[in-house]
Amino acid sequence: MKVFQVVLFIFLIVCAISVSFSKNLLNSIIIFMSYSLIMSIIWILLESPDLAITEAAVGAGITSILFFVTLKKIHAIVAVEHDEEKAGHHRHDRKGGAK
């Protein structure tokens, strides 16, 4: 169990650092989601199931959905897709906010 906890804590730190250093906002949000999920497992290990339920519902669920909607609204997700496709002929003069 101790090993499991240590692994979780390491994951947590890695997630926290990579959220802030990720260049792509979409990736950051997905990593943030996994951060919340790990956090909720840690809450269970710390014997506070109340918090774990809330963290899973709010942190991993609703917050990330709100982030996704916001990204879509500021035209950030589309820009990512174009970057990945490398569609050279289809070039917008306006770059998305994701990069």
Partner: peptide, 24 residues
């Protein structure tokens, strides 16, 4: 989760968040 808030883990806030995500 809401109705059993006083008996088992959970309560108004967590249950409400779960219902909210269901509605979404």
């Amino acid at each position: 989760v809401i109705l059993n808030g006083h008996l088992s883990p959970g309560g108004g806030f967590s249950g409400g968040a779960i219902i909210g995500s269901g509605l979404i």
